[in-house]
Simulated scan of single mutants.
Amino acid sequence: MIANGVQADTISGVKWVKAAASNGVGQCVEVAALPGGDVAMRNSRHKDGPALVFTPDEVRTFIHGAKSGEFDHMYIR
């Protein structure tokens, strides 16, 4: 198990992925599937910064909320 808040650059053997819609200037969230099923997320501007670790259920719940528009009010245009 990888602890929440661990330095992202210490997580080895994972592939960090960001959205294809990324603008290429490091303003993205990157995710990595962890052994055991958890998901790590980091700020692409701070690859060596902390990673937040979520369970599969937490990620599914967040994605469902995002797809249904629950966070649209937070989007800055």
Rank of each mutant, 00 (worst) to 15 (best):
A32V: 03
V29T: 08
V25G: 12
L34M: 10
Y75W: 05
H64W: 02
D38T: 01
A19K: 06
W16C: 08
N43Y: 06
K18V: 00
G26K: 03
P35M: 02
N23D: 12
A32N: 09
K67G: 11
V6T: 11
Q27R: 15
W16E: 09
N23A: 10
R45G: 10
A51P: 12
K15S: 14
D48W: 01
K18G: 03
G69C: 11
R42M: 06
T55F: 13
C28D: 10
G24S: 08
A20R: 14
A51Q: 05
V59Y: 03
S12C: 08
E70Y: 02
R42Q: 06
A32D: 07
H46Q: 11
A20N: 13
S22R: 05
I63T: 06
G5L: 07
T10H: 11
Q7H: 04
A20S: 15
A32M: 11
G37T: 00
A32F: 07
G65K: 10
A33E: 08
A66R: 05
P35A: 09
G36D: 02
W16V: 02
N23Y: 01
D72Q: 09
L34R: 03
M41R: 02
V53S: 11
G5C: 06
I63W: 06
A20H: 12
Q7S: 14
M41S: 08
T10C: 12
E58Q: 15
G69T: 01
A19Y: 01
K67S: 07
R42N: 05
V31M: 13
E70G: 08
S12L: 12
S44G: 10
A51K: 05
F71L: 11
F71M: 07
A66E: 05
A33M: 10
D9E: 09
S68K: 07
G65Q: 06
E58L: 09
Q7F: 00
V53I: 13
E58A: 15
V39Y: 04
V39R: 03
G5R: 04
V39A: 07
G65E: 02
R45Y: 03
T61W: 03
A66T: 01
V6C: 14
V31P: 05
P35K: 11
E58K: 12
D48R: 14
V31E: 04
A3T: 02
H46F: 11
I11V: 14
R60W: 00
R77P: 07
G49E: 02
V14M: 09
G26E: 02
E30Y: 04
F71G: 09
I76P: 03
K47D: 05
N4G: 07
N43H: 10
R77F: 03
M1G: 13
E70C: 13
W16G: 06
V14H: 06
H73S: 13
H64F: 05
V25K: 13
R77C: 05
G13M: 02
G37V: 01
M1T: 00
A20Y: 03
S68D: 13
V25N: 15
H73F: 12
A20V: 04
G24Y: 01
P35C: 01
M74V: 02
A40S: 07
C28E: 04
V25A: 14
A3I: 00
K67H: 03
V14T: 05
Q27C: 13
M1N: 05
D57G: 11
G69N: 06
R77V: 01
Q27N: 15
G69A: 07
V14A: 10
D9T: 00
S68R: 10
F71H: 11
V25R: 14
